[in-house]
Amino acid sequence: MEKKSVWKKITSSRETSLVIVLLVLVALISIKNPSFLGMQNILEILKNNSVIMIMALGMLCVLLIGGIDISITSSLAFAGMTVGMLFKNGVIHSTLLGFVIAMAIGAVCGLVTGLIIAKGNVTPIIATMGFMYIYRGFAYLVANSQWAGADALGDFKNFALESYLGLGFLNNVLFIVLICYIVFFVILKWTKFGRNIYAVGSNAEAAQISGINVARVKLSVYTMMGFLAGLCGALAVTIYASAQPNMQQGKEMDVIAACVIGGVSMNGGRGSVGGALLGALILSVIAKALPLVGIDALAQNTVKGFIIIVVIVLNVVTQRMMDKSNLERREM
């Protein structure tokens, strides 16, 4: 009996089905193109998608409280561009300082967004749409019609190539991704703050009554999102060895899509770190795999969008089937 229920739990869990989807995808692709499974290739995929993977964590929290943030790539660009220009103009030389500045800018951006949403009661989609324009504008103003190329970035660009943080085994960028995932997993599973995030998204009114400061939770979540966007700003600059004001434009939709594929509900209260990770991985594997299996790179977006739609529709269909079988089991 106990064994059966454990089995049932595994098969009915969203994460497991995503793992299966991911494995099937990887298997299919590697049959067609064995080089896909090479260590080098996998690390490359992970590194190129690290920005999406990290921001998916912040977006997970934002979606969990029933919000949304489409300003993230703008604050990313603002933070990244600022750091880029600081290096270019020789104001700073330290990689660490570059990261700190980027994270600080991102956190402030997130804090302001959070204040408008939590204290000003502006709906998240509108507030972040406004800030999407504003922060992107800031990025352009900072850039002042220039951009920071590889030669201007000095040591900073080497950060993504080296692996001193990962003790020589793991690339620096991937090490940061790993740390972020561990931290968020712990926060969301084992801390009061993490559980309060779920509570606010599940029933904000009840949360208020049980003494949770809903506004503060919201504010913290958006600040956290901004902080991660800032971090990703710095990461994007070092990974691509360039800072441009239009960097990562439109990628906020990829981040949201990763979460949605990972089973995070847009109504709040439902979703997990594992889901966000798997969603991001599935998206990035697909993007990388299409050319390998002979689909024109031009069709990439079409396939991606199509998969998003199929996944969400499948979600609804399975839910309906589950409801139906539940009803049929009812004794009358």
């Binding site: 949201i256 396939v303 998003i308 739609i309």
Partner: peptide
């Protein structure tokens, strides 16, 4: 969001 990506795709 899905169709946005598809149409432009």
């Amino acid at each position: 969001l899905g169709t946005q990506i598809v149409f432009r795709g």
